[in-house]
Design a protein around this nucleic acid. Structure first.
Length: 444
RNA sequence: GCACGGGUAGCUCAGUUGGUUAGAGCAGCGGUUUGUGGAACCGAAGGUCGACAGUUCGAAUCUGUCCCCGUGUACCA
């Protein structure tokens, strides 16, 4: 007996993977429907690419080239390595390269798809999650970049966020490029460490960042981060750059002008926005929420951004000699849903079935008559699907949050009426069968 | 990866300086005379106390190793 128990498969899930229940899925569906609405309005094409790609097709262009392949779920098929995609941008670049002659240029596409990352999960971070991507491929026009920010903002507001709930932050890789020129820093290592430090400024504050730019920093959990070893003058220059309210970068200035044309205001220039290290070539964007997000224990957690993107003019070129500038933005749908669930005023109406009680199995024919009436009026309904006494049936109805139950026993059948019990109020009334649909519509 | 905190019933947790048969609440199941849920009462059931090894007459409790979860940190396409 005990040995048998050990043989049972685990009911736990692999780390970083989650079951998702109706409540969350309905909000997700809602979000997706809003995304599609907006994307159609902005004239984007819908695309789907497979979950798996050849590892080289994504791995070769991993931004962190020190650790190729790490962070990706892979397996060997025959002689080739396959990997689950870790984002939707690399597959897009591959798609564009593959279909370069057929697709219009510029090419505007959006995609919704699950992506997988083989890394340590954290609060609001899973190893499998749904991502939304919108990209402009084949244009250097910064109107594309501007429109991406406008569009993401429209999506968020359609999903129920207001302008105080989020901010679109923009910067440009050109700003940091110029900064390193000024600082006379050429070492790749120093550049990465510095960029990573800047990326953390909002979370840790300038005082902590200074330590990382210098020798290093020990955080409160006792972990030590090695610093970039910059000198005081260099740090001072960085501080000045970060404190500049206005950008001296042409691309940002142009985007800001475009924002004015679009009457888009909910953005902020923030030179500490970094995003990926080796991937972006121009403007970068990041969308942050301005309200606290809590975990299941009620603790406020470091939630991070719910979306971001930027210009990546060299990515498609990696697949061949294709001069193909591009820019894109993405939203982590599940994180957005997670955040929406915590907004008090956010409620989605859910539909639960009306239940017809079973008094006598021999009367099923009668029950189905009622059921068909309801279903043909598009009313969610069911005959009690289990077995057992009325009490048990009522408990079930209560548990599934059925709005009301129908009693159609011998007494009612004789009088050709039904008894309707409203489960929220407990009210009970007898009504003629021909009035049933109308009465029910009043309740639901 | 690193640091800290945790792993006891399906869930949330209690378990005193090591001591006999490991507890509670909630959920689940059965019942309170069978055509009425969300309230109440009664009853039974449910655990290799994360795993392995060690110390001990005796370990949920102490020690070591490992696994898993949480939070922070690092990395983040």
């Amino acid at each position: 007996m005990e040995k048998e128990k050990k043989l049972k498969p685990p009911k736990e899930l692999p780390s970083g993977f989650e079951d998702r229940q109706e409540n969350e899925l309905l909000i997700r569906d809602f979000v997706i429907s809003k995304i599609k609405e907006v994307m159609i309005k902005y004239g984007f094409q819908y695309l789907e690419t497979p979950s798996f790609e050849y590892t080289e097709s994504i791995g070769k262009f991993l931004p962190d080239k020190d650790r190729p392949g790490e962070g990706v779920f892979s397996f060997k098929d025959e002689s080739k390595w396959l990997s689950l995609r870790y984002d939707l941008t690399a597959p897009l670049a591959r798609y564009v390269a593959k279909n370069f002659n057929e697709i219009p240029k510029p090419f505007k596409r959006y995609q919704l798809g699950t992506v997988w990352r083989n890394e340590k999960p954290g609060p609001g971070r899973y190893r499998e999650f749904l991502q939304f991507d919108a990209d402009y491929v084949g244009t250097k026009n910064l109107q594309a970049d501007a429109e991406l920010c406008v569009l993401i903002s429209e999506i968020l507001e359609k999903c129920g966020l207001d302008e105080n709930d989020y901010t679109v932050k923009i910067s440009s890789r050109k700003i940091t490029d110029k900064l390193f020129e000024k600082l006379k820093i050429k070492s790749k290592e120093k550049i990465s460490t510095t960029l990573r430090a800047l990326d953390k400024i909002e979370r840790l504050g300038w005082n902590e960042i200074k330590k990382i730019l210098g020798e290093g920093r020990k955080d409160k959990s006792g972990d030590y981060t090695k610093g970039a070893n910059l000198n005081g003058d260099q740090i001072k220059i960085i501080e000045n750059t970060l404190n500049s309210e206005k950008s001296d970068s042409e691309d940002i200035n142009e985007i800001v002008k475009l924002f004015e044309s679009y009457k888009f205001k909910n953005y902020k220039f923030d030179p500490s926005v970094i995003r990926g290290l080796e991937y972006y070539t121009g403007p970068v964007f990041e969308v942050n929420l301005n309200f606290d997000v809590k975990n299941s224990k009620g603790q406020t957690i470091q939630f991070g951004s719910i979306g971001g993107g930027g210009r990546y003019d060299n990515l498609v070129n990696n697949f061949g000699n294709l001069d193909c500038p591009a820019t894109g933005i993405s939203i982590g749908i599940d994180r957005l849903v997670f955040a929406l669930m915590q907004k008090k005023d956010f409620k989605l109406k859910t539909v639960r079935p009306i239940m017809i009680c079973v008094f006598d199995k021999n009367n099923i024919k009668k029950y189905v008559e009622i059921l068909s009436k309801l279903r043909s009026s598009n009313i969610s309904s069911e005959i009690y699907p289990g077995e057992g006494k009325l009490k048990k049936q009522m408990e079930y109805a209560n548990k599934i949050a059925s709005p009301c139950v129908i009693f159609y026993g011998d007494d009612e059948i004789k009088k050709s009426e039904v008894k309707l019990r409203n489960l929220k109020t407990g009210d009970e009334s007898s009504i003629k069968i021909e009035n049933l649909v109308n009465e029910i519509k009043k309740i639901i």
